[in-house]
Write a protein that binds this DNA or RNA. Structure first.
Lengths: 215, 215
DNA sequence: CTCCTTTCTTGACATTGTCAAGATGCAGGA
DNA sequence: TCCTGCATCTTGACAATGTCAAGAAAGGAG
């Protein structure tokens, strides 16, 4: 059990960060189901009631953790699309980044979409979730050549299609539903490429459609 | 609080079924997160330790509940495809049935895919899950005209694509991610049709491909 | 009728989340 | 430098939970 880094029992100095670090460990090891506030407090070296000052309750801590999870997701998508110029390939790279995040941090992935446990009014969660969503939205708009139109109609349909695909694939993978006899990493990667390869955007700006005849 | 239907406190007679019925209510009202064994026992009118004899522990009860959930899912898919002859339309109808199940029974849906809480060795869960999976598999094979080939390659890719789509859509819907200002039932239905409309099967039997020229 | 098995009840224990009271430390102002 | 108010923690308590053990009661077979 790690010792308290500061001698002051009544003023840690950076307890919020220490609790978040402990919380990430507990989440990674035990999943959302096994996550407890007291275990986080133990690992941070404080009493069971100390987290309340910083997070309110267990929902507050999980919400903060989910915001961090969204930030990691955004980072994974940005890293995946780095250096990719073709709009459709960029969108597909972002899709791969999404699934990579789910595979690399399965418990974070599950937490970020565990609707019932989180406080959706939380500004940090909203901002982080919005940023992740914006990555996907910008990529779709880039392919469609529709930077300013409202997100509706075919554009929205394209986004929901792409998001459903990568989200569904991630979720089925984590739920063990893609595991079959002989299903190894290679088969999973092939299945992923099969799914990513079907990401399409049908919405188009009229200018792009006419001048290039890309119909 | 319902009274015990039989006077014998030490022999209910049909406690397993009564506990499952109570469990369905608790799950529907409180979700997986708020589900407790003691609350199920209370509603069934027995002591807190009575469920142990029938289910072992809370995982056992949730596993039995998940098996029922898969049965409901299978029923929803079968009902959705009833009377639909065209293979591709039948597959799409099954996809709609999948999403309908998620919308009608959100907590059951979430439970059936809550990997960490369930006992995957349970024969009833395996059978029920297998039957649900078989509905999707048979529909894909029907479109492809591939009744006997091993489930691999393009056939498997088609299945994973279709499943990822409907599963991802369901999950995003339940996670509140498709909720935006003005997003009502009609928009959700349009988005669903947009997703369902993109379900395609590219695997084909050679006989079908050649004799009919359906490429 | 007896005995064994099944099916429950009661009680206990450890752990959890949350709340309240109070102790301690920090920082700002006089 | 001292005082005061606020922030930040500790300690303790309570209710609820899951699980286990011991034992009571009911059913069924011989």
């Amino acid at each position: 059990m790690p010792e308290r880094v500061k001698p002051s029992a009544y003023h840690h100095g950076d307890l919020r960060r220490a609790l978040l670090a402990a919380a990430e460990m507990v989440l990674a090891e035990r999943g959302v189901e096994g996550f407890t506030l007291r275990e986080c407090a133990r690992r941070a070296g404080v009493s069971h009631a100390a987290p309340a000052h910083h997070f309110g309750d267990v929902t507050g801590l999980l919400t903060a953790l989910a915001a961090l999870g969204f930030e990691t997701l955004t980072g994974a998508m940005r890293e995946a699309r780095a250096g990719v110029e073709d709009p459709t390939e960029r969108l597909r790279s972002i899709g791969r980044g999404y699934v990579t995040f789910a595979r690399d941090y399965p418990e974070r992935f599950r937490l970020t979409f565990d609707w019932h446990r989180l406080n959706h009014e939380d500004p940090a969660l909203r901002a982080a979730g919005g940023a992740a969503f914006a990555e996907l939205e910008m990529a779709i708009r880039h392919v469609a050549g529709l930077a300013d139109e409202p997100l509706e109609g075919e554009l929205l349909a394209d986004l929901v299609h792409a998001w459903s695909l990568v989200h569904g694939f991630s979720h089925l993978l984590l739920a063990g539903q893609l595991d079959h006899a002989g299903t190894g990493e290679r088969v999973i990667n092939e299945l992923l490429e099969g799914v990513i390869g079907r990401i399409r955007v049908s919405a188009r700006s009229e200018t792009r459609g006419r001048s290039k005849g890309e119909k």
